[in-house]
Amino acid sequence: GDHDDHSDEEGDHDDHGEEELGRFDPHSWLDPLSYRAQAALVRDALIEAFPEGEADFTANAEAYMAELLTLHEEFSSALAACEAKDIAANHNAYAYMAERYDLQFVTVHGLDPEGEPTAADIAEVVETIEEGDISIFYVEEFTDPDSVSSLVEQSKSDTMPEGVTLMTLHTMELPPKDSNDGYVDLMKENLDNILAGMTC
């Protein structure tokens, strides 16, 4: 009997863990300042593990953290000028970015891009697109355009006969298609793509 009780408790614990994951967006690196804080943690861990490399680790981290601060300032100043800050996207991966730069994301999928959206989910996003005069719908780098074709179809209107235009917002969960693209490059592309879809 005791053994069964124990496994039940473990089961409850696992469910709770999954529930926690489902509620929180893990993509903290899409906020350059959060990513900068993570770089500092990596630096400290490297110094602890390899004390002889402290000077190099410190210098490299400082240079990179300065780059991330500049990136944040670019986002901040560019987006501050935008009037409408509504963004329609496929996947709810942008909570940290939204929080930092006061953006409003409406998404078809929740935190799990593999999940199947309901007709109501799609209808809600299409309604936001129409009400907010949104012309661009953001997908991740590896999204199959066919998977959002019904949304594009439903967004067609007199003012947008072709429906919304698809553009990429990199989430950087997978290695980039071009191995030369680093974090800062992809984030700058994200910024350009966001600005393309907003009234700034």
Rank of each mutant, 00 (worst) to 15 (best):
T165M: 04
S28L: 06
L68D: 05
Q154M: 09
L174A: 14
V106E: 00
A80P: 08
S34D: 05
I194F: 02
N190F: 03
E54K: 15
A120G: 03
M198C: 10
D15Q: 08
S149P: 10
V152I: 15
T58R: 12
Q38E: 12
G110E: 03
I47Y: 03
D144T: 06
F24V: 08
D133Y: 04
L21D: 13
H13C: 06
V184D: 00
V152Q: 13
I47D: 00
V164N: 07
D102P: 04
L166M: 07
A49Y: 05
V184S: 02
A119V: 14
T159S: 13
Y138V: 06
E19I: 12
D25I: 11
T58F: 01
A119F: 04
F137Y: 11
Y35C: 06
D86I: 13
E52D: 11
N92Y: 12
E9Q: 13
G1I: 11
Q104S: 11
P32M: 04
K188L: 14
E127H: 14
H72Y: 08
V148K: 07
G11T: 09
V106P: 01
H91C: 01
V126H: 11
H170E: 02
L68A: 05
E153Q: 15
E116Q: 14
S28F: 14
P113R: 10
N180E: 11
D121C: 09
E52W: 01
D121Y: 12
G182T: 03
M65N: 03
E9M: 10
M172N: 01
E67T: 06
G110S: 13
P51Q: 03
L68K: 10
T159L: 09
G53D: 05
A89Q: 06
A39R: 10
Q38P: 00
P113H: 10
D181M: 06
A84T: 14
V148P: 00
A98E: 05
M167P: 00
E74M: 05
L71M: 09
D8S: 04
L174T: 13
S77E: 11
N180R: 13
D15G: 05
H6M: 04
Q154G: 11
V148M: 09
A63W: 00
S157C: 07
T165L: 12
G163V: 14
L68E: 04
K177L: 09
Y35G: 04
